[in-house]
């Protein structure tokens, strides 16, 4: 993410907060509003960030991923059903990761091994995820009257979570905390580790990586599946951290907003996180403004991430460069 775009994002977030601050009702303190907006923003940003990180590992290795939505949706279902069956939330999260990674394995098999067009492969996964989870939620969850296992309890930062105004920010649930850790972890993995270097090499110039003795296929499989597992955590967020139920189509297009965040963030973990925060902040503003009786053009809020992404892609606010080999199957020889 370029410095200019980073400042642009900061300015946007500042403007969002300022907008609420100036228009809020007199009996709620500014600090409360700011803290509340921040809390809401972090909450909305969690699945977006996870989705964007999932897409990042995938695309950094040169495999386009428009199937974040499908991976998250199927993981949301898998996490829910396993948690419900085992009555273990931890098992549910693991199941979410396994399901996400399994969908990713399908994506990798199709696009890396069989060299199916990566967009087509992503489309297959999205359609399949919607159909299979819808079908199973009717035929299994409904028929067997399966009840959810509840939600992951919040983890409180000892002293800080008891503070009056900002307290809620420091009592997030595990996946929200894990997301922050994953942003840092993903940055470290991608830019500081051997595997990260190889993933990036494979995504930029696969023949160079191949010539250096790296298996392009294995690296892509691994990266896509790591991404899938992260998408799986994002899916588990919906059914184990946000609400204790699974609903068909409950990811509600967030996988595509995550894709937008990934692009807006220039395919970097920090950038994707900041972009997710920005998009989440727009939603938080939408909610907060209504709370204070300010009419908001909802459709404009709804368009915000998508318009911004097109603008960025068109190069109007700095330019983003995708990994050079994204979308191209690697054919050795």
């Amino acid at each position: 993410m370029t410095r200019g775009r980073f400042l642009f994002v900061l300015a946007c977030i500042g403007a969002l907060v300022a907008a609420v601050e100036t228009l809020r009702s007199p009996d709620v303190s500014a600090a409360v509003v700011a803290a509340s907006m921040l809390a809401t923003t972090l909450r909305f940003a969690t699945p977006l960030t996870l989705g964007a990180l999932a897409g990042m590992f995938c695309e950094r290795s040169g495999v386009a991923n428009i199937a974040i939505e499908g991976m998250m949706l199927s993981a949301a279902f898998g996490a829910f059903i396993v948690a419900a069956m085992t009555r273990s939330l931890a098992a549910g999260v693991v199941a979410g990761m396994v399901v996400g990674a399994t969908m990713a394995l399908l994506h990798a098999w199709l696009s890396v091994t069989l060299r199916v067009d990566q967009i087509v492969s992503g489309t297959v996964i999205n359609i399949m995820a919607a159909g299979v989870t819808g079908f199973l939620s009717t035929e299994v969850v409904r028929r067997k009257a399966i009840e959810g296992a509840g939600l992951l309890p919040a983890w409180r930062v000892p002293v800080l979570s008891d503070l009056p105004v900002v307290g809620p920010i420091f009592q997030q649930q595990p996946i929200a905390w894990a997301t922050l850790a994953l942003v840092i972890g993903a940055h470290f993995v991608l830019f500081r580790t051997v595997w990260g270097l190889r993933v990036r090499a494979v995504g930029e110039l696969p023949r160079a990586a191949h010539a250096a003795g790296i298996s392009v296929q294995q690296t892509r499989y691994a990266a896509v599946m790591v991404g899938g597992a992260i998408a799986g955590i994002g899916g588990a967020y919906f059914t184990l951290e946000a609400v204790p139920v699974f609903e068909p189509m409950m990811t509600n297009g967030r996988g595509f907003i995550a894709l937008a965040a990934l692009i807006f963030g220039g395919w970097t973990p920090a950038g994707a996180w900041v972009a997710s925060l920005l998009f989440a902040a727009a939603n938080a503003l939408h909610i907060n403004a209504q709370q204070f009786g300010i009419p908001v053009p909802s459709q404009i809020v709804g368009m915000f991430p998508y318009v911004l992404t097109i603008v960025i892609l068109a190069g109007a606010i700095g330019r983003v460069t995708p990994p050079a080999a994204v979308g191209q199957p690697y054919v050795p020889d």
Partner: peptide, 30 residues
Amino acid sequence: QIVYHSDVGPEKTFDDPEWGKATALSMIDK
């Protein structure tokens, strides 16, 4: 405080429990 989920289309607005929860929490914060 009345908050509508009008920023998504009619096909999604009834199916977004995560949003509903976040909105409720935002109100509770205040």
